[in-house]
Every structure is written in C-alpha cells, then in structure tokens.
C-alpha cells in the first residue's frame, strides 16, 4: 500500500521544496547567477529562526515579540568569541576566544537558550497582550544592552573576525558550502522539531494552547512545559543567529531590533502557523518579495504591506496551510 511517492499535497510540497533547495546552487552557477546562493542562504537562516518561533507561537500559542533577541544573542556569541580569538585577548579576562564552530555554535545555543529560559520564567506568568509586551520589553533591553556595548562596536556592530571553522571539514567562506550547511541544519532541526511536536511533550504544548484550564484540571503543570519549549525555541533561534553571523560576516544590534522580531512573526503567520514547513515558506516569500520589491522601488513597503494584508485575509492558515492535510477524496 505504501508508495515511495508523496501521498498528500503537503508532502508533495515538502518533497518539491527539498529537491529545489538541493538543486539550487548548481542551477544558480549554471545560470551565472551565484547571487541567488547567498540570497537563499539568508532565507534558510531566517527560515530556521521562524521555525523555532513556530514551536512556541504555532504549537504553543505564545506570541513572543522578542524572538530576534535570541537570534541576536546567538550571533553575538559567535562574533565575540571570534573577536577575542583574533585579538588573542581574554573574554571578561577569563576565557580565550575561539573561531571553532564546534565550540561557538553550541555555546550560542546555550546562551540563547539560557536567556530564553530566564525571559520565559518571568514572561510566561503573563498572558495575551501582556505576554507580547513583556517579551518586547526584554528584547528592547537586549537591543540597548548591545548598543551600549562599546567594546564590541556598540551601535556599529562587529565584523566577524573569522568565519566559524569546523576542523577543516567545511569552509563557511565558500558560498556553496555555507548554503548546504544552512540547508542541512534546517533539515535536521526541522526533523527534530517535527518529532518533538508529535511527542508527549508536543501534545502538552498544543493542549495548553487549545485549552489551558482543562490541561491544569487533567493534571498538567503547564508552566514548566511552556518554559521548556520557550528555552528550546530560544536555543534554536541562537543557532540561527550563529549561522546569520557567518552568513552576514557581521553582527550588530540591528539583528535584534523589534522590527526583526515582527518580521519573524510575519514569516510564521504568512507561511502557516503550527506546521514547521510553513515558516520556511513564509521566510522565502517574505525575503524574496522584499528583495524583488526593494530592487524596484525604494518605497517597497508600500506594496509589501497591502500584499501581506491580502495574504493574511485570504489565507488565514498561511500559504502552506492552504494545502489540504489529506489527499482529497476522488
């Protein structure tokens, strides 16, 4: 009965997306348009950030308006460690820097995850609009913290002294290599999160979104599960930050500006909340549209805004969410 071919529209979409993404670098080079490799690399990084937000926003119903803060912190961890490694100075007079991705990337996840745990510990005690505002407030605090951090460039940001190294296994200076690393990370994280959302943990998260009161009265202390999801989402966003630092070769407070957080939310909603694939689609549409429109006019947001509005009105479940879950009956 089982066939190797996809059997639902959504699975077809995922399969086609995967093939297209795998084939993009050779295709772009064949067409003499290597620019698309870096453009889509950037999309993949934001797709990862949006996917991590989907865990708490789409599955957990938690509208975090500060997600860019975790991306930014992940990026700064990589940037700061590389800076100290290049200058051969000690971080806080204690720790040597490093350009090794084996160390810096997990550390980026750890720091962003720990920050998310702390932020979540406070903000998850609130709900609705208050939750949105308090996560925004934390993100603003993080933003201004890095703006005032003169040692690391403050407002101007910090050039990445060196790309992360992986024991000579892969060089992120090479566009194509970076592209496939980003794609691989996205695929692996996507698979992991897919398992997580269907697991017992994921059921608790979704149950708490659907009916928190009932969850409490069938015996779930929902706070701790939400906090764990929040920390996990923060850690994955930190990983996206580590990638972003390498992609842009630069870190700056602008990465965690509140408009960035808003853009990540838009990507999730545009693509389809609670689907994991949707945010990837959303990141594509958002960033490619931004690219195309900004090349056409300086006031691209005048066109972009209404387009988003239409998408949200006519595709409430997002673009990917428009596809039926099951094969339509014949």
């Amino acid at each position: 009965m089982t066939s190797l071919l996809p059997n639902t529209p959504r699975r077809w979409a995922v399969a086609l997306l995967a093939v297209a993404l795998l084939a993009l670098p050779p295709a772009a080079q064949a067409l003499g348009e290597p620019f698309y490799i870096s453009l889509v690399s950037r999309v993949l990084v934001f797709a990862l950030a949006a996917m991590s937000l989907d865990l708490i926003l789409g599955f957990g119903g938690l509208v975090c308006f500060g997600h860019a803060m975790f991306v930014g912190v992940g990026a700064y961890v990589v940037g700061i460690l590389a800076h100290h490694a290049a200058e051969e100075t000690l971080l806080l007079g204690l720790l040597p820097g490093t350009a090794s991705g084996w160390i810096a990337w997990p550390l980026a996840m750890l720091c962003a995850g720990a920050l998310a745990a702390a932020v979540g510990f406070v903000s998850l005690r609130t709900k609705g609009v208050h939750f949105i505002m308090i996560t925004l407030a934390f993100a603003q605090m993080a933003y201004f913290f890095f703006v005032s951090l003169r040692a690391y460039g403050g407002d101007d940001g910090l050039s990445l002294a060196a790309r992360s190294t992986f024991s000579g296994l892969v060089s992120l200076r090479d566009k194509v290599s970076f592209y496939y690393v980003a794609l691989g990370v996205l695929a692996v994280v996507g698979l992991l999160l897919w398992r997580v959302t269907g697991s017992r943990f994921g059921m608790v998260l979704q149950g708490a979104k659907a009916n928190e009161r009932r969850m409490v009265h069938i015996g779930f202390p929902v706070f701790r599960y939400r906090l764990a999801a929040f920390a996990l989402a923060g850690a994955v966003a930190g990983l996206a930050g580590a990638l972003l630092a390498n992609q842009a070769n630069f870190v700056s407070p602008a990465m965690m500006h509140w408009t960035r957080s808003g853009e990540i939310i838009v990507m999730v909603i545009l693509g389809g909340m609670g689907t994991l694939v949707g945010p990837v689609v959303g990141a594509f549409v958002f960033l490619l549209l931004e690219e195309a429109l900004s090349g056409w006019t300086e006031h691209w947001q005048v066109v972009f805004g209404p387009a988003l509005l239409l998408a949200v009105i006519y595709a409430r479940q997002g673009l990917y969410g428009l596809l039926p879950v099951r094969e339509s009956a014949r």
């Binding site: 398992r195 997580v196 269907g198 697991s199 017992r200 943990f201 059921m203």
Partner: peptide, 15 residues
C-alpha cells in the same frame, strides 16, 4: 498521559 509521570518525552509519537 497526565497520570503517567512527567511529559518531558520529546521523541516518540504520543498518538
């Protein structure tokens, strides 16, 4: 699920 101990189980499909 609520009465079977904690739900910090991330891998196996619940359903």
């Amino acid at each position: 699920q609520a009465r079977q101990g904690h739900s910090f189980r991330f891998w196996r499909g619940a359903l």
